[in-house]
């Protein structure tokens, strides 16, 4: 009996080693967001709780935990409670296949990229269910908008991933990273540059972030699909959203910036000088770059109009991705070095 349980306990221990840093990253990403946007807007951001305001995320979490969770009379109570759980569970579970370093992956499955695509698209269910179950006009409008938008950008994202698969020959995320080895110029960001941009913009739209946050649109539909949520249920949506942002950044780093590979690979001198840095550090640094860009975008761009969002998704991103499928296909047929030998 005990012998059968040991592998399970070992798996759970490994999951916690991934999960706890992810949750801490989510908490401090909200802090970083307020600080970075604060400085971009020439404010100083939160600085009251603890040194430099570092206690702020913990104070927020404790506050939300002790707040009443309102269950509106008009709502459908079961769906209303299920929706925040669906918001947070896939955003966390997707981390199972992310390779943090050479061999540092919980489940090294062959269909890794498909799993990411499948589980991140579950997020739209939480939006639809919460919007429907709240039985509130703002929530309903927000849910409709968000569902149509997420679904539209998922096509662009899907085509972008197809191009990555063509270039990498595998759906296994570790294999995709290893296929990019050979230094900075061998990473997929260069041969797949248009697709890289399409993927990242789709990622911003998928997570309902500014400038694509029509689903929330504070100034018109107050908070969109989670307008009726309070206390910890709201916090679940919040955690889920930030966990998916960090996930998108990690996936972008894995697919286009060579994951855990050192940027100094192939440069004599520098490669040896930085050989002691573990792959995990490079992976985290690359993810941070994209996380910062997310905040930068939020602080810089005004919100799009809905027809503009749909036009960008359908008429620009999808055609670009489709054209690049043909371009990369031809490049593979012609064996263009160094990427498609």
């Amino acid at each position: 009996m005990l012998n059968e349980l040991i592998p399970l306990i070992w798996i759970i221990a490994k999951i916690l080693v991934i999960l706890i840093p992810v949750l801490i990253a989510v908490a401090y990403y909200t802090y970083a967001e307020r600080k970075v946007i604060g400085y971009i807007q020439v404010r100083i951001g939160p600085n009251r709780v603890g040194v430099f305001g570092l206690g702020q995320p913990i104070a927020d979490a404790v506050k939300l935990l002790f707040k009443e969770m309102i269950l509106p009379t008009a709502s459908n109570p079961i769906l209303f409670v299920i929706a925040p759980v669906i918001a947070i569970a896939p955003a966390l579970a997707a981390w199972a296949v992310i390779p943090f370093g050479d061999g540092l992956v919980l489940a090294n499955i062959n269909a890794g990229l498909l799993y990411i695509l499948a589980i991140t698209s579950l997020g739209v269910y939480s939006v639809l269910i919460s919007g429907w179950a709240s039985n509130s006009k703002y929530a309903f409008l927000g849910a409709m908008r968000s569902a149509a938008q997420v679904v539209s950008y998922e096509i662009a994202m899907g085509f972008a991933l197809v191009v990555v698969l063509m270039a990498a020959d595998s759906t296994n995320l570790s294999q995709i990273v290893l296929h990019q080895s050979g230094g900075f110029w061998h990473w997929f960001w260069l041969p797949l540059l248009p697709v890289f941009v399409v993927f990242f913009i789709s990622g911003v739209a998928e997570t309902n972030r500014l400038p694509f946050d029509m689903a929330e649109g504070e100034s018109e539909i107050v908070a969109g699909f989670h307008v009726e949520y309070s206390g910890i249920a709201f916090a679940c949506f919040f955690l889920g959203e930030y966990a998916s942002i960090i996930l998108i950044c990690a996936v972008t780093a894995t697919l286009f910036l060579g994951g855990w590979l050192s940027p100094f690979q192939g440069i004599p001198g520098l490669e040896q000088a930085f050989a002691f840095v573990p792959g995990l550090v490079w992976f985290v640094l690359k993810t941070w770059v994209f996380m910062f860009i997310f905040l930068w975008i939020r602080a810089t761009f005004p919100r799009y109009r809905y027809d503009q969002i749909m036009r960008l998704g359908w008429k620009i991103l999808i055609p670009v991705a489709v054209v690049w499928i043909a371009v990369i296909g031809i490049a593979i047929q012609l064996h263009i070095p160094p990427w498609f030998t």
Binding site: L8, I11, I12, K14, I15, L19, L65, M69, V81, P84, V85, I86, A87, I88, A89, P90, A91, L92, A93, W95, A96, V97, L106, A107, I109, Y115, I232, A233, A235, C236
Partner: peptide, 18 residues
């Protein structure tokens, strides 16, 4: 199998918090 466990833990985190 670890993925299944991870999904279960993800649901447990959300449900547990609520």
């Amino acid at each position: 199998f670890p993925i299944l466990v991870f999904i279960a833990i993800g649901i447990a985190v959300g449900g547990g918090l609520i």
